[in-house]
Write a protein that binds this DNA or RNA. Structure first.
Lengths: 187, 187
DNA sequence: TCGTCATGAACAAGGGACAGCTGGTGGAAG
DNA sequence: CTTCCACCAGCTGTCCCTTGTTCATGACGA
């Protein structure tokens, strides 16, 4: 579907073609500006469009095979929401009457699971912490990680969204482990 | 920025809040419907929103470390366009007068490079094929790859967008190589 | 306008998935 | 018509995705 076709489809809903052009331009422009400004655009049921920092790396020239250094950059990223993914995967078909975004019927999705999880949530935490070390007999690191997460959980509120990965180690060897730890501490 | 703020920002451009609500609803709804229908929404300068089939695989439960089978599914995917990426990365700042999407000034960007590439495009193909083996003395695979691509180039026009990955090999060992070859042949 | 609830994010470990390098060409948009 | 953008190839390093839980916030009914 082209941009022109998109405008045409929107015109089919708005009724006017001129309004559709303005609508498409305005919506996309606002989203782009917000992302450029570093703000994440989050629409329930549709998805989140945000900007994330990508660490520098070494890529490869397809023709010559030579290693080229790619410096760290910021790229926009879109994460589809649950409803969108469900509709695309076919789990839930899209409603034809109302808009396909931000429509949350009262109890259309897994009502039993939700009501069951809510009251048992308090003691579920204890169950998880107890079960983890038992199964993780082969890996002791997991238990420590869980404990650390519980401790840091109240400290981390929302983080800054942008500024998660700040590993400048491009010329280093791997820096993967360092980046992991960096993410936790949120340097 | 949530949906309400998005509507407000769009209202700032359209002038009316009601029109902004309809605009946001219509645009998102149209995009969602198109993607659900299997059609890719491609807006030049903004990005492409499409649905891709993800082959089944084996993931891992982070708590227990157990391998869990993930059956194949279809998920929406967004790929940002060049202009969008440039603006986010800071290479090109967004224009404040016009919309940030699909704005192509006549010759504002890298005029010398463009005019040089356009007329030489026809014979540039021969130049590339000749230059590649010369530089690729250390890697012969690159030259073969280029030749193969040239042969398949006229055959592949647009492909089906959706239906690229159809490797059902879930219980196999890796299936990565097989999937690669599948992509070329477009089974 | 307030209350309730669904929805999204984070955290962890590890491996599969995938973005993207370069450069030419087709298509698209103005 | 002109000018630009997206795509595509093999190969890598980066990143996302998986489950399950809790917290926080947004969305919606009354």
């Amino acid at each position: 579907m082209n941009k022109g076709q998109l405008v045409e489809a929107v015109a089919g809903q708005l009724g006017s073609r001129t309004a559709a052009e303005d609508a498409v331009d305005a919506v996309l422009d606002v989203m782009v500006r917000a992302v450029v400004a570093g703000e994440a655009v989050q629409v329930t049921g549709f998805g989140t469009l945000e900007s994330v920092q990508r660490a520098g790396r070494y890529a490869r020239n397809p023709q010559t095979g030579e290693r080229v250094r790619v410096k760290k950059t910021t790229v926009p990223r879109f994460r589809a929401g649950q409803g969108f993914k469900d509709m695309v995967s076919g789990t839930k078909q899209l409603p034809k009457s109302g808009p396909a975004v931000a429509k949350a019927p009262k109890g259309s999705l897994t009502p039993s699971k939700t009501v069951a999880a809510t009251p048992t949530g308090t003691k579920a935490a204890a169950k998880r912490s107890a079960a983890a070390p038992a199964v993780t007999a082969k890996k002791t690191t997991a238990s420590k990680a869980v404990a650390a997460r519980k401790a840091t959980a109240p400290a981390t509120k929302k983080t800054a969204a942008v500024s998660r990965k700040t590993a400048p180690a491009v010329g280093k060897k791997t820096a993967a482990a360092a980046k992991r730890s960096t993410r936790r501490t949120t340097a």
